[in-house]
Design a protein around this nucleic acid. Structure first.
Lengths: 265, 265
DNA sequence: CAGTGGTCTAGACCACACT
DNA sequence: GTGTGGTCTAGACCACTGC
């Protein structure tokens, strides 16, 4: 991409030059942004799988014909977005929900200070996993055609034997073909790790909308509470690469012994 | 701090060398971290006030005897933490809650999609602002001695004439001496901007704990709701430089027409 | 030891804002 | 034009990991 002319410091020869990198990236953006987009493409295409090491900064620099510093800045941003994970002395790895560091990073419900007994991993109880058709709301949220096949999953998460979260998940049927209640119940580690490993769907970020609600009588029974108990309703849309929505989740959080923790920066 | 010996590239002469910068920064940390700490000290000391421009990267580099790139990395991190604000072509400025971009950045309650009428700034109704003594909980949270003087403020925030947030704020009496209900009611812009301008207290980050609750009968009256309405209870601790807590806030959010929005990355 | 990411420098040029 | 932040390069050395 770069052909030094006379001086030893030609950072960029102009706008047109940049387009040769790839027609898919915008024509006017810093070089490192284009490199970032290219790495992103490789990630999305599955050239490097979650948990795997990616080429060293110098290798990537050679491949993209830019300096190592430029690759560095691209990788910096990607690792800040939790798409890559740098490990000094080892290399740079594709981030994964299996990683200790990133496990349950989307779950903001934590036990209140007084209850240390409730920490540790949740116990899952999958109530069902059934096929359905996308209604207008779901089709819009998942950017699917109306009536498209989806999966509906309901489960309960318990901490220290106390049922605490009642969760309804909606997944596009195509991407998760074959997913069963048994698999959801019995797999090891986070559910998002299962999605990565078995279905090649890596959730990259998510948006949540939180309100306070009362449970329906049926939901109250599931959580073993009075139907006059105030609960957090957390509606999540989880996104994969390029902000494509791949999951809708509506959860009810019991906040008797827990709270939703958020850090504002 | 740097004295090139023979080669034109001596990034660092060793650990001891670094201590001459300042005895207050840890002895082993990258140069740019020390620069960051020094800039932070100047910010805390008020050398540059919120909204003011700080010296250019080259000036800071000369002052600290490091290269511009090293200053750059320090400033990069500070502006990522919203302590500084870079503006290409203009300079780097001390971030402020008066800034459009940062106004209400700690307020995550947003109107539901269907209600555009409810956006826009909130209307404040200050119910009281009175002096009190810190009880054990407050003393611990604000890191003050027990019985220390504090200010207790209660107010209602309304969106489009609908009372939506009932808020109790607790401030250390020393730092906010003279703060009155009138001032809280009548000032322009965000309350955190008032704290900056008049009391020199800049809130840098905050932590929130969210639960679902029912209001007390009195609180329900204030929000003009049934006392069986589920509400979000948002407990916030706001921190100034060096993570010193300077405010406790307990708020009740009505989520009939709004929701708490959170982006997970 | 070699290989990787992490830090630091020096210098050049680009993009933007103001005068 | 001047000055600011923003990008890019090339090269050196440091810190960490694992052979």
């Amino acid at each position: 991409m770069r052909e030094p002319t006379s001086a030893p410091d030609v950072p960029n020869e102009g706008l047109l030059d940049r387009d040769v990198l790839s027609p898919k990236v915008p024509s006017f953006s810093p070089l490192y942004q284009q490199i970032k987009a290219l790495i992103l493409q490789s990630l999305k295409a599955g050239e490097w799988k979650p948990g795997e090491i990616i080429p060293s900064e110098f290798e990537l620099a050679a491949r993209f014909q830019v300096s190592q510093g430029t690759v560095r800045k691209a990788v910096d941003e990607l690792s800040q977005e939790h798409l890559l994970l740098r490990r000094q002395g080892k290399g740079t790895f594709v981030a994964t929900h299996s990683e200790q560091k990133f496990q349950y990073r989307f779950l903001k419900l934590v036990p209140n200070a007084e209850n240390t007994a409730l920490s540790g991993p949740a116990h899952r109880t999958v109530l069902w996993c059934k096929k359905a058709k996308a209604n207008p709301d779901i089709a819009k949220s998942l950017q699917l055609p109306l009536g498209c096949s989806i999966l509906q999953i309901r489960r309960i998460l318990s901490f220290g034997c106390v049922p605490t979260i009642l969760e309804d998940m909606i997944l596009p049927g195509d991407a998760f073909k074959g997913l069963s209640a048994e698999e959801l119940q019995n797999h090891q580690g986070p559910t998002y790790a299962l999605f990565e490993k078995t279905y090649g769907v890596r959730m990259v970020r998510a948006q949540e909308k939180i309100t306070a609600v009362h449970p329906s009588p049926e939901d109250a029974k599931m959580l073993n509470i009075n139907d006059n108990t105030p609960l957090l309703q957390v509606e999540r849309v989880a996104l994969t690469y390029q902000d494509k929505p791949m999951e809708i989740r509506r959860a009810l959080y019991k906040t008797e012994h827990h709270h939703y923790r958020n850090d504002l920066n």
